[in-house]
Each structure stands twice: as C-alpha cells, then as structure tokens.
Amino acid sequence: MINYHPDQHLLSLHAKGELPLSMSIAISAHAEFCQHCQQQLDQMTIALSEQQFEQADAKNTAAFEKHGEFDDLLSQFLSSTLDTLDTDVRLANNSTSQPESTDNSVTIKGQHYALPRVFKKQINASWQGIGKVSRLRLDTGEPQARASLLHIAANGEIPDHTHKGSELTLLLAGEFSDCYNTYKPGDFMLLDQDHEHSPKTTEGCLCYTIVDAPLYFTKGISKLLNPIGDLLY
C-alpha cells in the first residue's frame, strides 16, 4: 500500500508537461507504481486535451492572423513532407539498426532491480559510493537539481542531514524508515529544507532522489525559466 503521493498541484503540472525532467521522471515512475495517481493523470490529460482541442477558442487570433502560414505548411505537407516521412519510415524499418535497449534493470552489490520504464535511457552510468551507500548520478542536464539512483545495502543508513533546498525521495524497491515513518516501494516523499532525517534500512533499498533544488520542483518550468531569457542572459 502506497501512502505518500505527489500532491494535486504536482500532478497537474506533470499532466501539462511543465515540470523539469528530473521531477517528471519521479512522477512518471510513481504513477507506474500507483494506479490511483495514474488515473488522475489520465483524467487531467483528457480534460486538458478537450480544453485545448475541442472547445471553440474565442481568443485564438493566431488562427486568422496566420492563416497564410498554416496554408503554406499544409501545402508543403501534402505536396512533399508526407511522402518523405513515409519513405523515411520505410528506410528506418529496412535498416538493420540495433533495436533500442529495453533493459530497465540495474545490478548493485549483487542485487538485481527492475526499474520503471522511464529510467531506460538513464542507467548507463556507473555506481559510486562508500560503505553501504552507493549512488548512480543521472545526467538530466539540469544545473538546478541533482538526480540519482541511491542504493543503501541491508542495515545501512544515511547520516543525519538537512537540505539546502528540497529533497525528493521515491522508493523503488525495499524499505526504509526515518524518525517519521516506514516507507514502501512507490512512496513519494518531498521534504523541504527544514526537515532533518536519517533514513535507515534493514533489508536494503533502492531510491530515486533529487536534491538541492531550492524552489525548482514545484513551479512550472515555463514560469520559472523563460526559454528566451535563458538564451539571452
């Protein structure tokens, strides 16, 4: 039984595609464990798509200001792009390129773990660590957040620590406890900087974590980062 879930706000930003990659991975992985959140995400996506595509949009001025551009793009599709796309697909099917790896598993200290689908492109790096604690850094390309897989071997613990920003922990396998509670696979815990905790595990565990991300997670990217601003400054 999963007891800890992302809140409505995070789920709704995720359905819109407005969270950074590190957090999108966490919500997507949680939803693979959690039918309840998956259903909410599906409902939100349906509602968003109806709002975007099935309602008359009174303020859609682009529709007539840019009708020439749409016409041009459509003509281009019909006269050549569609045929080119079909040719490309046929060539891709005929080439003997190696099939995309579908191995979503990691092995650490003799333990083999199958991971949620969303990790499949991310797990090529190597493990690093001391003692019972090992870490595999994921390269999300986000300077604001550090995302990793964290493995704690049986009877291990992480020393007391606080965080500068928030810390997200998604338990993927095994169990751990801190002074607040005991956690099960799928549990999604977002702690702010004032929490102090020292997780311990008796049977060992594997988590996905994101740390040191002041204010980074919980706002939509489009609000937090102006893509054009990012290029200019």
Binding site: G17, I25, T45, S49, K121, G141, P227
Partner: peptide, 30 residues
C-alpha cells in the same frame, strides 16, 4: 484529441529541453 495532445505535449517537452539545456535527448515519450 487526447492522443494528439499527448504527442504535442511530449514533443513540446523535448523542444523546451533543447532550447533550455541544449539537449536533444527526447524523453517525452518515455
């Protein structure tokens, strides 16, 4: 509508990563 929305959102996510982080890594559909 829902299917096209999903395709569009995933594509938009990958485009934003390209613009913001200069990454061409196409995570949307995963």
């Amino acid at each position: 509508s829902t299917w096209v929305f999903t395709v569009m959102r995933n594509q938009c996510f990958d485009m934003l990563r390209k613009v913001q982080h200069n990454r061409e890594d196409a995570f949307g559909d995963d």
